[in-house]
């Protein structure tokens, strides 16, 4: 059973996915087992268009510092970060804070 979720790239981060901001995905993993760590891997393998852009998103096997992660509009730091267990219908928002103001 795949998990149906939504991934958003905001704050200019959509450059890593051919300027597409919203992605509806079916993650081919078991609900209740798959965690945020698996989602990050899924995103790098399936959503990032150019492998050259992976370091824009990932550093030391996790989301790069400076990218704000929200799970259903809640700071992922409150949701267990990489250990968060995915649920169908979840919305994951990645926002770059590194762009000029």
């Amino acid at each position: 059973m795949a998990i149906k979720i939504k991934v958003e790239f905001l704050g200019g981060l959509d450059i890593i996915s051919s300027s597409v901001r919203e992605h509806k995905c079916s993650v081919p993993l078991e609900e209740g087992e798959a965690t945020m760590k698996d989602l990050i891997e899924y995103v790098t393998k399936n959503i990032i268009t150019d492998p050259k852009d992976i370091p824009v998103f990932i550093e030391d096997d996790t989301v790069r510092p400076g990218i704000l992660v929200l799970i259903n509009d809640t700071d992922w730091e409150l949701e267990g970060m990489e250990d968060y267990v995915l649920e169908s219908g979840d919305v994951f928002t990645f926002t770059s804070t590194l762009h000029g103001g």
Binding site: L10, G11, G12, L68, T97, G100
Partner: peptide, 21 residues
């Protein structure tokens, strides 16, 4: 903090532009 500015803009749905020069 930058993080709080981005969160404030996000939650308040402010209209801002974000592309690097």
């Amino acid at each position: 903090y930058q993080k709080e500015i981005v969160l404030y803009a996000h939650y308040k749905k402010l209209d801002y532009f974000s592309t690097e020069c």
